[in-house]
Simulated scan of single mutants.
Amino acid sequence: MTVDPRAGRPRASSRETLAEAACELFLEQGYEATSIADIATRAGVSRSSFFNYFSSKGDILWAAFDERVDVAIAALAADDATPARDILMAIADDFAPDSLALAVANATVMGLDDELEGERALRQARLARAIADRAHRDGLPRLRAEVQGAAGAGAVLAAVWQWAHAGAGQADLGPVVAEALDAAPVGEPPTVRQLRVVVQAPDFEDTLTFYRDVLGMPQAEAYEAEGGARVAILDAGRATLELANSAQVAFIDRVETDGIASDRIRIALEVGDTSGVAERLAAGGARLEATPRETPWRSLNARLRGPADLQLTLFQELGPA
């Protein structure tokens, strides 16, 4: 007499029943050799019933995880109040061992190594895009946002794999995701989103012409107010704040100018051709304080005094010797 392998199991078609049947078959005969018809037969349901729960054979493994990722992606796009890290941590909330964890832990036996890696990459890319877009909206430059997105998504998927290999039923997924995100921080935008140097320029037109037209800093914004008030905001590329103690300032002055003292605040501008830009600025109204010279840290520096009494350092990164 043939014994029904599903004897004693409820005959009701359900996602859990189909998933259990599929994993049994993947372990017994491999993923590629198992058909949807095989899974439906083992589960005791019709083939058409299979598609009430899953769109494909691979969907059996990923459906529960995909639902959580879809929720996270929607939240990253719509909920700017909740920190991105908290949204990613929610993927792990009450995440019980399922078909995906079993497949990851038994990928070689099931013949699933290539299948899982390919599907993992697709989900990692979707999640990375959502994290990056959120980070960019939060104020990170696009490149840094893309890196943060890739790191955050990679951390989540790496945590799932680590959790599965360690024995998914032995620990919660949440602490593993938290540890992974600690290694690839995803979270709040920086407190300071832009450095803006505000300069009082009594000779406004000449100063604007020099920095915008001669030096070549594009005008990003301009405003006027009552009483002849005017302001122009020029784009200076990436902004940083360099803090130096007195000994460092004296050292830089010796290297860059043969000892001409720096102002308390000096504006340093990275350019592609220090000599050419210095010559152009001198011709446009700046006073050359120190001619271009190579520094020990492989940059070509020149110092000038520009309109509005700004002390300027031009520096060109020369790269390795």
Rank of each mutant, 00 (worst) to 15 (best):
Q248I: 11
D182T: 10
Q170V: 07
G152W: 09
D38N: 14
R212L: 08
L25C: 12
A164F: 06
H136F: 11
Q170E: 15
T257R: 00
A261M: 03
D86H: 12
A282T: 15
I73S: 02
L312A: 07
E67R: 14
N301P: 03
S35W: 02
A125C: 04
G284T: 10
R196N: 10
A101P: 02
D38M: 10
D206Y: 03
R120S: 09
G228V: 09
A220N: 10
W163H: 02
W62P: 00
D59V: 01
A178I: 06
R196P: 03
A103E: 05
D253Y: 04
G30N: 08
L314Q: 07
S46M: 07
A290L: 02
L116G: 09
D253T: 12
D113L: 08
F251A: 15
L173V: 11
S35P: 00
D263V: 05
R42T: 07
S48R: 12
R123S: 05
A180R: 14
A84W: 06
L100A: 10
G44N: 04
E28N: 03
A168L: 13
A19F: 02
R193M: 11
A63G: 01
P190Y: 03
S99T: 13
Q200Y: 07
T17H: 15
L241G: 01
E115C: 00
L157P: 05
R134E: 10
G174W: 10
Y53N: 04
G216Y: 01
